[in-house]
Amino acid sequence: MDLTHLRGKYTTKGLEEKDLNTNPFKQFEIWFNDALNEKLCEPNAMSLATVGKDMMPSIRTVLLKTFDEDGFVFFTNYKSKKAQQIEENPKSALLFSWLELERQIKIEGSIEKISKTKSLKYFLARPKGSQLGAWVSHQSEVISSRSLLEQKFDEMKNKFASGEVPFPSFWGGYIVKPIRVEFWQGGQDRLHDRFLYEKNESGKWEISRLAP
Results as ranks from 00 to 15, higher is better:
4 T>Y: 01
6 L>P: 03
8 G>L: 00
8 G>D: 08
15 L>F: 02
16 E>I: 01
17 E>L: 00
32 F>P: 07
33 N>L: 00
36 L>E: 10
38 E>Y: 06
41 C>E: 15
42 E>N: 14
46 M>P: 04
49 A>S: 14
54 D>F: 10
58 S>G: 13
58 S>H: 13
62 V>Y: 02
62 V>G: 06
64 L>I: 08
66 T>Q: 15
68 D>T: 00
68 D>R: 06
70 D>T: 12
71 G>C: 05
71 G>V: 05
75 F>D: 03
78 Y>E: 03
80 S>I: 10
83 A>S: 15
84 Q>E: 10
84 Q>N: 10
86 I>G: 09
91 K>C: 10
95 L>F: 06
95 L>R: 09
96 F>H: 04
97 S>V: 01
98 W>M: 08
101 L>Q: 11
104 Q>L: 11
105 I>L: 10
106 K>V: 04
107 I>A: 08
112 E>H: 12
114 I>M: 03
116 K>F: 01
124 L>S: 14
125 A>R: 10
126 R>F: 08
130 S>E: 12
130 S>C: 01
130 S>Q: 06
144 S>L: 09
147 S>E: 15
149 L>H: 13
153 F>C: 02
157 K>W: 02
161 A>M: 04
161 A>D: 12
161 A>R: 13
163 G>Q: 15
165 V>T: 07
170 F>K: 14
172 G>P: 02
174 Y>V: 06
178 P>W: 03
179 I>W: 10
181 V>H: 09
181 V>A: 06
184 W>L: 04
187 G>F: 03
188 Q>D: 14
190 R>A: 09
190 R>L: 13
190 R>N: 12
195 F>L: 01
197 Y>S: 11
202 S>P: 00
206 E>H: 06
207 I>Q: 05
207 I>H: 07
210 L>P: 05
